[in-house]
């Protein structure tokens, strides 16, 4: 009776109320910031005295802001491509391989998700300083890739798990070579997993803050780093505009991934 809606009695209204409050709590920042980004007041007064596009204009014209957006885009594309290239063969091994220490290998590939990011960040910071990589695109890509790779492997791996290997074998029985079977039968079937992995790799890189702060120099920053640096001096409304851009990207990519899931069904 406690898990059946009709029989739960008035207690269910308590659940409704708490969930409603939680949904409001979860949505508040995501809705509030885009509204605030059109606020005419320099001091983010609330309610806003007027509306303006000035902060977006500043975001898209000021060299430092627009430059950081481009850096973020470049890094995210490079991370996505590298994550898929590394994760695809690794996922095949983890799902289909029969070897000693498979559980250990699985755990190893997931380990960057367990270690606190700040530790990975300072460790890489030490390396970057030593090898003169600080403030290079390369350093950003390498660091973001560490976090993106596990997601890509898990995403592709779970897709591969549900794919029946018999299809691949029957293609080979019908005369396809191993490579042909992989390219024309298996890969198209696990495409949703690959795309989902790519989307999340992109989003992880695009959103990464902690690693990026340690890899950045004043001359090369990604958008979250630029927000972080600006935040430390003031609460300029340009940050609200930049934040809205980041929120927009999350909404877009999650929307695409939801669409893919639906068409898959």
């Amino acid at each position: 009776m406690l898990l059946t809606l009709q029989r739960m009695g008035p207690g269910r209204y308590v659940l409704y109320a708490i969930t409603a409050i939680a949904v409001f709590y979860l949505l508040l920042p995501i809705v509030f910031i885009p509204i605030l980004s059109f606020n005419a007041s320099r001091w983010l007064e609330f309610p806003p005295p007027g509306w303006t596009l000035r902060w977006y204009e500043q975001l898209f014209t000021e060299e430092q802001w627009i430059g950081s957006i481009w850096n973020s885009v470049k890094v995210a594309f490079l991370v996505t491509a590298s994550a898929i290239v590394l994760a695809l063969p690794a996922a095949f091994v983890l799902v289909r391989g029969k070897f000693l220490g498979k559980t250990a290998l699985n755990a190893f590939f997931a380990s960057p998700m367990i270690v606190p990011v700040v530790i990975i960040a300072v460790a890489l910071y030490g390396f970057a300083l030593q090898w003169g990589m600080a403030g290079t695109l390369f350093a950003f890509v390498i660091s973001h890739l560490i976090l993106a790779l596990p997601f890509a492997i898990i995403s592709i791996g779970s897709s591969l798990q549900t794919f029946d290997i018999a299809y691949e074998k029957s293609a080979m029985i019908c005369g396809a070579s191993r490579v042909q079977a992989l390219l024309h039968v298996t890969l198209p079937s696990i495409r949703p997993g690959i795309i989902a992995g790519a989307l999340f790799a992109f989003l992880i890189s695009w959103d990464e803050v902690v690693l990026a702060i340690f890899m950045a120099t004043p001359s090369l920053q990604t958008l979250p780093v630029k927000i972080w640096v600006t935040l430390r001096t003031d609460l300029s409304p340009v940050i609200a505009a930049a934040s809205s851009l980041l929120i927009g990207m999350s909404v877009l990519l999650l929307g695409i991934s939801a669409l893919i899931k639906r068409t898959r069904k």
């Binding site: 949904v23 979860l26 949505l27 508040l28 920042p29 995501i30 509030f32 910031i33 605030l36 983010l44 989003l203 959103d207 803050v209 979250p224 927000i227 972080w228 935040l231 609460l235 940050i239 609200a240 934040s243 980041l246 929120i247 999350s250 909404v251 990519l253 999650l254």
Partner: peptide
């Protein structure tokens, strides 16, 4: 809503609370 909040930039969410 839960997923959207989870996948929104950490810095953005923190900044929103700051404001």
């Amino acid at each position: 809503v839960i997923l959207l909040s989870m996948w929104t930039n950490l810095l953005v969410r923190t900044y929103a609370w700051l404001v």
